[in-house]
Amino acid sequence: MKIGVVTFPGTLDDRDAARAVRLAGGEAVSLWHADTNLHKVDAVVLPGGFSYGDYLRCGAIAAQAPVMESIIKAANGGLPVLGICNGFQVLVESHLLPGGLIRNEHQHFICRDQKLIVESNTTAWTNEFELNQEITIPLKNGEGGYIATDETLKRLEGEGLITFRYKEVNPNGSMNDIAGLRNERGNVVGLMPHPEHAVEPGFGPDTTVAMRSGVDGLKFFTSVINSLVNA
């Protein structure tokens, strides 16, 4: 299974995302922002970072990059795409997911192990989770406050498109505690927390079992491989 990981100028977590793909049993393929060729990948990860220095708006310039032309077209045709943090912002700016992300309500950059509830397990990226499963995924962002119009929020709630919700703490003022979304088809998922930072014992969030033993993020990547195998 070939999973592309896109690098934009200012991307930070492409290496971590590629490593997560490999740990899940996939083959990571580097995709370059200026290249429209997706190299026949079976899925794409838009990793975190600060593409184009967050100029204009987070993710806005990356959404106009040549590689995104191909990704938007492929995503509309069913290619699984996961946007993590800045990648989520790129998906929103590309109109693959609705709404917008603004500066955290308390105005501080936040970095914490965040509890989430998986509210949809019928997507390409979440099919190995239980419905309403509680997972812990590292969160690190300055502009993670999710907002949308009342009409959009009603649609997201009504159609079950909210995929992850913050549990216990809403860390950034996101409306309806939204941490991540899916599209109707379930091939496109975006979230602010970083699953690629919770894939290997010794380097993940703390759990009750042992320090840094959390690997809840690995299931995002095994899920997509699973969905591709069964496709």
Binding site: R57, A60, Q64, G100, A148, T149
Partner: peptide, 9 residues
Amino acid sequence: SFLSNGVIE
């Protein structure tokens, strides 16, 4: 379409 995002600006 590009210089602003109608959801926030």
